[in-house]
């Protein structure tokens, strides 16, 4: 049990490092993939809603606190929702076909970025359409690609 916790904390730490170090080279026109969100989605799918939202909340809080996110609590909020939603896939992945699975995760990712960007840009003069097309959709697709790659690699291991 303790070993599992240690492994999971190690994974969290590695993903955090990856988010801090590598994202600067993967950023395209201000759009960056969210490795933490990928971790939250996978945690939710594998361990369920409770675990997913807990991981989402704490990882989001850490990322907000160390200044990589935006307002303190914003990533925590968005990732809690994402972790909770991803938990619905627990035990269902193999019953869904690939496209439905990908679409569900895409919608969760869009929901996450919608919460994040709409609150982040609240009060700015940017229109909702602009925020959606300029930030939410590109970030969602970018993160979905990373998620699908990681998910595929994990499936191969399983």
């Amino acid at each position: 049990m303790l070993a599992r916790v240690a492994v999971f904390l190690g994974i969290c730490f590695s993903v955090l490092l990856a988010q801090i170090i590598f994202v600067q080279w993967l950023t395209i026109e201000d759009i960056r993939p969210d490795f933490i969100l990928v971790l939250v989605l996978i945690a939710g799918r594998v361990k369920g809603r409770l675990f997913g939202q807990m991981v989402g909340f704490f990882m989001g809080l850490i990322i907000d606190a160390i200044g990589v996110g935006s307002y303190l609590g914003l990533s925590a909020f968005a990732k809690t929702v994402a972790g909770f939603a991803a938990g619905y896939l627990k035990g269902r992945k193999w019953r869904l076909n690939f496209y439905v699975h990908a679409l569900f995760n895409f919608l969760v990712i869009v929901l996450h970025f919608s919460i994040f960007y709409f609150i982040n840009f609240a009060g700015s003069e940017l229109s909702i359409e602009y925020i959606f097309v300029r930030y939410i959709l590109p970030s969602s697709f970018y993160t979905l690609v990373i998620f699908l790659i990681v998910d595929r690699l994990l499936s191969l291991e399983e």
Binding site: F57, L72, G73, L74, A76, T80, I119
Partner: peptide
């Protein structure tokens, strides 16, 4: 609880 906590922090 977590959502409320997040919003409070926010």
């Amino acid at each position: 609880l977590l959502i409320i906590l997040s919003i409070i922090i926010l």
